[in-house]
Amino acid sequence: KEMIQLYHGEISVSFKESRWFDISVMLPVDKYAFHPDEVIDEESEEWELPTLPIAEGEEQVKLPIVLIVEDNTKVREFIARELSLYFQTLEAENGKEGLFMALKKIPDLIISDVMMPEMDGFELCRKIKNNELTSHIPIILLTAKADEESHLEGIQAGADDFFLKPFKTNQLLSRIKKLIELRAQLRIRYSGRSTVSPKDIAITSTDERFLEKIQEIVDRDLSDSNFTVDEFSKKLGMSRMQLHRKLTALTGLSTTAYMRDQRLRLALPRLEKSGDSISEIAYSVGFSSPSYFIKTFKETYGKTPSEYQERRAKK
């Protein structure tokens, strides 16, 4: 019981019968349930992607997730096999299953056949691009039809590229890499600015609406130090994993890191213009302690809040 209380948990006992009882233990899993002084290591994000095998002295590289939606088993397995050295692959045998998998796993890219049972590739593409959870995901459609009408329908559905069957594997790999790199450039754009408009990093209009919704939550709730990742995801109607994958795709940051980053960004104009103390500013933007604010500010901007103020004053 003492150990559970030390971890800010709860323990309860429920008697079912005279001979049986249940013991229930609830423990917080979010770092912000604890005081910063109680946290030793940074919280490792859940659902980490697997990493490539590496030689000694090299850095680990995370594998992007590619979802392959194809009703022909041999074609699907062939694509998965060819991509497996470079990506983590998921497979679905029709559009309906592919949509379920996309919403559940939030992959980095989707490759889909056009002609499939249950739901064809065009409908899958439209549903992916119109859903806030998945609108950022690039989609490559595979088709045996070379006619202009099919190509136009794919563009209207939101497809990012087309490949005619049969296709060369190295060309497909090259295009996948390029599409993932384009998304990475948007994340770099986010990290390089002190203020970012949703239009600056949005890939689709659905993304823009999603980012605007996030900004509303940031403006309204982030200054509360008790505002958690769980509350953030609930307000957006997403699971922790879905929000983590979506934010990572758009900004390059996990949900925890994004919240911390946004709090630091909120502090910048206060440091420049207000006459408040460092402690007052730290609490006003949602940090639970000034020491943690100073530590993370220096890690992010290379100087303490006081040093930042002094430099801005000289300008």
Rank of each mutant, 00 (worst) to 15 (best):
K168H: 07
R126Q: 08
V285G: 06
T204E: 01
L141C: 06
S291A: 04
V218C: 00
V69H: 04
S12G: 02
T251E: 07
A267I: 04
H244V: 04
E42K: 14
A257L: 09
E280R: 09
L172V: 00
T300W: 03
E82K: 15
R209P: 11
R126S: 13
E17D: 13
L142Y: 13
I54C: 10
P138Q: 07
P36V: 00
L268I: 15
L90R: 04
I140M: 13
D147R: 11
I68G: 08
E148R: 09
I188A: 04
M238R: 13
K213G: 08
E42L: 15
F287I: 02
T143P: 12
P198N: 04
R260L: 15
K62Q: 13
F232P: 03
S174R: 14
Q156Y: 15
S223T: 12
R193P: 01
F162T: 03
G286L: 01
K165D: 11
S239F: 05
P305V: 05
W47K: 02
P305M: 10
T248E: 13
T134M: 12
T300R: 14
E208N: 09
K104Y: 02
L182M: 08
H35S: 14
G302W: 05
T248N: 11
L85I: 07
M259F: 07
K235C: 11
N226H: 10
F163G: 02
S197Q: 13
M115P: 12
L250M: 09
M101W: 05
K177H: 08
V29E: 13
Q88S: 02
D261S: 10
W20D: 10
E153W: 02
E97V: 05
A157W: 01
Q5F: 09
G121I: 11
L67M: 02
D224P: 03
D71K: 05
